[in-house]
């Protein structure tokens, strides 16, 4: 019984361990390496005490040259979903979708429908921004919302190769120490969408985190045109 458990565990890890995955980069077979693959999601105060929140979504990655990278896909709608009351249903939504070299933003607005399908919220335009090349083009709307879309350095860091050895049962010592560890994502780039938005536009949360603090509960989805 015990040996069965051990062998099953090791075989299981060995199979899983070879899949290239990290943060949300390349996390699942159906989206891995596609233009819809979410790489990362960041949300933070731009400065301490600020009344704004910065939301950054990274799509795609060139950490592996075989992956889709380099341009936003007009068939892919990005949604930033924000739950205010803690029921894990989105109360307000921001959308971004590219057209003809520009990124168009919509919301934040109560979505016309929740669930797994969406339409572009054309009645609630937020603004648009020319998609940048290597130098950043930034737009600030009349409401004080800053917008950006374009290629950027991938700020995610992880010794992913050692992680694979660890979960594969091939690294008895675990992870490497600081002197030997290698950031697999050093030098890689991603297609970033950034929004800096006044909190008042998102609403006031009543949801709590695990420490009892008032928080938005937010998640990113990519959605492909049917």
């Amino acid at each position: 019984m015990k040996k069965t458990k051990i062998y099953l565990g090791l075989a299981f890890m060995a199979i899983i361990g070879v899949v290239l995955v990290a943060a949300d980069h390349i996390d699942a077979p159906s989206t891995a390496g596609t233009t819809a693959d979410i790489a990362d999601f960041y949300a933070f105060e731009p400065t301490e005490g600020s009344d704004n929140t910065v939301l950054i979504v990274d799509l795609q990655s060139n950490v592996d040259p075989s992956l889709a990278y380099g341009s936003f896909d007009e068939d892919i709608l990005l949604e930033i979903n924000v739950d205010l009351d803690g029921d894990l249903v989105e109360d307000t939504v921001i959308q971004a979708i590219p057209r003809n070299g520009k990124m168009y933003f919509f919301g934040p607005v109560v979505p016309t429908q929740t669930g797994l399908t969406s339409e572009v919220l054309v009645d609630s335009p937020l603004g648009s921004i020319e998609i940048s090349e290597s130098s950043a083009i930034v737009e600030t709307t009349d409401d004080g919302v800053k917008l950006f879309a374009g290629p950027r350095q991938d700020a995610f860091y992880f010794d992913f190769n050692q992680f694979n050895l660890v979960i594969g049962g091939n690294a008895p010592e675990g992870f490497k120490d600081v002197d030997e560890a290698v950031d697999t994502f050093d030098g890689s780039n991603t297609m970033a969408i950034a929004i800096e938005i006044p909190n008042i536009m998102l609403g006031t949360p009543t949801a709590k985190n695990a420490l009892g603090l008032d928080v938005y509960k937010a998640w990113i989805t990519t959605n492909r045109k049917q």
């Binding site: 699942a28 979410i38 339409e119 572009v120 995610f156 959605n223 492909r224 045109k225």
Partner: peptide, 26 residues
Amino acid sequence: VEFSGTYAQVDHMGRPGINTVLSADD
């Protein structure tokens, strides 16, 4: 600009690494 159509969800992310580390299989 044309924005019509229905879009169906294909990827999700909240916290980093959750699906990656804790989902058991493809």
